[in-house]
Write a protein that binds this DNA or RNA. Sequence first.
DNA 1: TTTCTATTGACCGATTCGGTTTATTATGCT
DNA 2: AGCATAATAAACCGAATCGGTCAATAGAAA
Lengths: 205, 205
Amino acid sequence: MEKFLNISKEKQDQIIEAGLKAFGQNGYKKASISDIAASAGISKAMIFYYFNSKKELYLYLADLCCGIVINKVKEHFDSSVNDFFDRLKMTSEIKMEALKKYHGSFSFLESMYKEKDEEVQDGLKNLMSGIQETAESLAFYEVDLSKFKDGVDSQLALKFLLLAAQGFIHELPSDYEFEVIDKFIEDYYAWLDIMKNNFYKEEYL
Amino acid sequence: MEKFLNISKEKQDQIIEAGLKAFGQNGYKKASISDIAASAGISKAMIFYYFNSKKELYLYLADLCCGIVINKVKEHFDSSVNDFFDRLKMTSEIKMEALKKYHGSFSFLESMYKEKDEEVQDGLKNLMSGIQETAESLAFYEVDLSKFKDGVDSQLALKFLLLAAQGFIHELPSDYEFEVIDKFIEDYYAWLDIMKNNFYKEEYL
DNA sequence: TTTCTATTGACCGATTCGGTTTATTATGCT
DNA sequence: AGCATAATAAACCGAATCGGTCAATAGAAA
């Protein structure tokens, strides 16, 4: 595997993107090394030269994607931000920055959560345990909800905002341009501002 | 194929659900008849006894799912409802009713839109042409947007509400219970009411 | 009993799978 | 230059799986 780390970053990225895409779309079992190699523009033998098996490649990618998210969280998350909308902006920014590293990262991560194949279960369990503490639910405790008007259910607001973000991620084609993410962030912030202006008590505007 | 229509509705549904799930998760090429048969609890040979080929089964399911949605639209859509939120309730009700017929219908429909395999392209093209007129974008013309307060972008509101609905559909596990849909509809309506109460000019409340 | 239908498990050739081996090309090092 | 070593691809491996067929069985109807 040190073989892989010694080649150029561009070629590494081609292989990583190809792997994330194939595994993300088809799951572990139905993704094939031949597909990945062809999609990365190299021969199948090279995949086994860099990584020794399908399993090793998969777990490397899993580790990589989790690492990206975890690092972004450690880098940007600030628990002292306790305004509802500011906190949301922060977490969505973290998410989107991770999304911008590799096209396939999110569809891979999501298929990873559903992955049931026994061959990789052991390796995944290890990863999961270390990532639970960055779960979304934990990211929203200690947020100040008293700024909301009576009659506005902040939990419902949160729920639908998170669903919308998830909907956006799923709507992305596998070959999206990075700018569509920036465009979405823009819309997202505009939408958050509208909600804030109409859902907060006047003294907090 | 008339063989298939003569067996009991329950057995039909088992096969349909198995097919929708397999094709929806894996796409046409990577879904296997063996999987579908096993998941439906019958032998592989029976699939070829009812349908003569993989392609015929796939196109039958595609036709079935499109038919369900189209019928629900014809049945429930009322273009005279031109309040923004009432229209949204109506279209989401149509969607969810279709979702409740078969667990796998929506993931199948979505994978159907992305399907690129040449073997079924011809059959899909025919279906698509008849379904375009029920597209979501068309469902929102002639809606009265003047009730919104200044500063509230109704198009942005629509966009995020549709994204949230899509996010919900994707969050569903493949073996969801039908009641979670009712629970979501409940939340959805509560959320629409909150938005209406805060986004409409006072004279329209 | 005969006849027809529903159903299966075993089977078919073809393809594809994960993985290996071999041969060839670059790439240093001296 | 020559020589070793690493990078790469193509051809290959046995095993599994693919879509699809078929012969044999069981069951109901006659």
